[in-house]
Design a protein around this nucleic acid. Sequence first.
DNA 1: AAGTTTTGTTACAGTTTTGTCAACAATCCT
DNA 2: AGGATTGTTGACAAAACTGTAACAAAACTT
Lengths: 226, 226
Amino acid sequence: MDNKTILVVDDELKIRILLKDFLIREGFNVIESSDGRHALETFQSSHKSIDLVLLDVMLPEYDGWTVCREIRKLSDVPIIMLTARSDDFDEVHGFEIGADDYVKKPIRPTALVARINAFFRRMDKGNQESKVLSFDGLEIDDSSHVVKVNNKEVVLSPKEYVLLLILVESKGQTISREQLLNRVWGYDYFGGLRTVDTHINRLRIKLGEKDYLITTIRGFGYRFEG
Amino acid sequence: MDNKTILVVDDELKIRILLKDFLIREGFNVIESSDGRHALETFQSSHKSIDLVLLDVMLPEYDGWTVCREIRKLSDVPIIMLTARSDDFDEVHGFEIGADDYVKKPIRPTALVARINAFFRRMDKGNQESKVLSFDGLEIDDSSHVVKVNNKEVVLSPKEYVLLLILVESKGQTISREQLLNRVWGYDYFGGLRTVDTHINRLRIKLGEKDYLITTIRGFGYRFEG
DNA sequence: AAGTTTTGTTACAGTTTTGTCAACAATCCT
DNA sequence: AGGATTGTTGACAAAACTGTAACAAAACTT
């Protein structure tokens, strides 16, 4: 497999260096950029050879959102946003603008690399296929976050959407409440397990007649039927 | 057998004890070390059996960074650094050295354990194969928890499912009621042995015509015929 | 700042699961 | 055969699990 090239955009030299080192150690090629304007120029001049963009939100010249939007006008390259704190980040905002994923600082290198690899794996898998998952009567367009039941759009809240996505991504497998808490709410969330039930319930209501797609496996968790 | 072993390196006795107790309670094996030199020796002598290293930055003899670097020369074991200060220098330094994650003091044990678990989960996600056990007419898909008899799904209760799984995993061997109580109900369960009989009975009923797969070994226990 | 949506938690009722018992059946032993 | 031991099965109450509604806090909109 030939090496992928990643464009790293961050104004902090230290972070840039450490990301570069880590990515190179993982076998990627790295192009660096320290501000928004330069990043855009770099991308314009050589976007054919860039396979993924790591983009800090806070940048001089243009901020990360702007850079993201501009890049989107040129290309569908995967963009992963790096956010300093969770406060100043709005996930929905990020998705609307066209980012494919986001990673909160402080960055955990292995996690980041796992995420990057996941992207490339997904891309290699079906470059032709659109990112629309669909099962009998249920459609999930992951790029636009639109969910349809019998061709009618259903509006899901963020948590509901992620919950559904997690279930669908491991369809056929039973996932415990603990796992769902970890994957939807995060590994550092310590709320009660009943919370999952409630959200499953809300999700089912919104799925309407297709609610049977989410099965309860008593004593174990939930499962999406593919 | 499934237990992961964690090497805890910290010079403060209190913290070491705190971490050890917590980790052991969570089902990990723990090896301790109080200074850098000893940690390295320990790791060199038994790094085959160490699955993760918790490493304090400030240590006598060698400091945490040095220990980290040396361990990296030997192995790719995940390393989580415990840092007292939260300024960027530590993190950058850590990235360069090759640590996988950071946890800032003061440590919240539950959060730390969650992080460790997240790590292990991600790691053995790679070598996770959906194992489907199947015998004439009986199928057990452990990832989805679906059991089929003659291609027809059979719904088992949690206890029934685990019971069946235990039996199947040691097929051909006779397992005593005591062993079944231990492995299905847990080491700290003190119920009567008859309980096993009842559940075997219920299991057989649900297995229908395939009930002969579970044989009674009079005076000893039960056996699954593979 | 007020109103709306999302989210986490709790409470409770309906259902399933579970443990235990006791009667009954089968097997073993002398 | 007869008694003793062991296994099976049905009944039933206790415990556990889940779905749902209600409510309050938090986040987001306008």
